[in-house]
Design a protein around this nucleic acid. Structure first.
Lengths: 215, 215
DNA sequence: CGGAAAATGGACCGGCAAGTCCAGAAAGGG
DNA sequence: CCCTTTCTGGACTTGCCGGTCCATTTTCCG
């Protein structure tokens, strides 16, 4: 039997993935060797290949999945409850804070570029993450519509796609320039765009909440 | 004197950069060796190090600059003339086409991740590109304002930043999923956002030009 | 022409990092 | 308590790839 893992085995494997994720965040994929990971996690070469027989690629893939799982988790519970302007604003703040803290590391992007075309699994991980993310944003917009806060004529999926793109791009730019202006601009403009479509019947005035901050 | 390049020398150097750019687009930075580049460009190791004494990093940096220069060029002349809805639409189409054609290659992103933290120059190249790009978008929005097509109350720089983020993110997502939906959504939603702020005095009705295409 | 500077070819080196292997320690379970 | 399976340690191999070096050819310029 191929995967008969004891408790100790599972622990070692998990330590390997988490430790690898840390090292990769710090040094970047291109500059990280298996020996770095081995040293950090207090393991030996044989353990690494015992749990990841296909070597580095397989480990990297596991780390990618590990990181992908984190992304949406870190945005909860707000991302799952986008039914009022307040919750959108809180979510926005969490996103900004999370990525500002992450700084110029984009573990997932880097991993994807590295493993990308060699292993088909990498693409699947990112695609699935994007799908779920956009789904939750779309659900949030629909919740606003249900509450009469956003025009029901709005193209929900397209708007959610645009917002997701803005976030991704904001993060991309921040990684390059070290500045979160674009991320904030994308989020704020996206939310402002939602607010500007307020349904004609129940339309509370736009308070300065999201429209502040010139640049 | 360090940089006394003859005509022949300049040609070889240029061939090296252009050829390297091709190979890097095809194979990705991580999987490209100096020998690949040497083979493709019909040069020898000594030539490579003759023109790029600091080796691979220096060559990669030159390629990054080469690619960066292309990005804005490919969007001209539209990007420099964004003074009517038609020109915005044409520009949008060019951007979509350019990146759809590029497919899942992002030479600049990949180069940045590879050279990124080792050479400070890499960050400068990307930062400058973003600055110019956003500048031209902002100029375009101001041109619309001057023509009374967009409310003069709009925060130009923030909107331009959000639009740029949307483009970057759209490209990022397309690289991962192979699908340009998000890029189009970001561009169309961005333009729609501009249209929705039409100045109260001179406000021609919104024709279906940009608001078409559900998803 | 002729000498200097630039350009070119390609053999060679050295290090590094992925992956292999086997011996031995620790669990597990009947 | 013993035998099997899993887990661990670390030395070793192997190939690749960035970088060096020097001999040779070509170009430039007075």
């Amino acid at each position: 039997m191929a995967d008969a893992l004891t408790a100790k085995g599972r622990a070692t494997r998990a330590r390997l993935v988490a430790g690898a994720a840390d090292v990769l965040r710090e040094q970047g994929v291109a500059f990280t060797t298996l020996d770095d990971i081995r040293a950090r996690t207090g393991t030996s070469k044989s353990q690494l290949f015992h749990y990841f027989p296909d070597g580095k690629d397989e480990l990297l893939l596991a780390v990618a999945q590990f990181e992908a799982d984190r992304v949406l988790e870190d945005q909860q519970p707000h991302l799952g409850q986008l039914d009022s302007w307040e919750s959108w604003q809180q979510w926005r703040d969490v996103v900004v804070e999370r990525y500002e803290q992450q700084g110029d590391q984009c573990p997932l992007g880097a991993l994807f570029l590295q493993v990308g075309r060699s292993r088909p699994g990498a693409r699947a991980i990112v695609t699935e993450l994007m799908r779920q993310w956009q789904q939750q944003l779309a659900d949030g917009i629909r919740a606003l519509q249900a509450n009469g806060l956003v025009s029901s004529a709005l193209a929900v999926d397209r708007t959610a796609a645009a917002l997701l793109a803005g976030i991704q791009g904001g993060v991309t730019v921040m990684m390059s320039t070290g500045d979160s202006t674009h991320l904030k601009a994308a989020l704020d403009t996206g939310i402002e765009h939602l607010r500007s479509t307020v349904a004609p019947d129940a339309a509370p005035p736009i308070s300065g909440t999201a429209a502040a901050a010139p640049h």
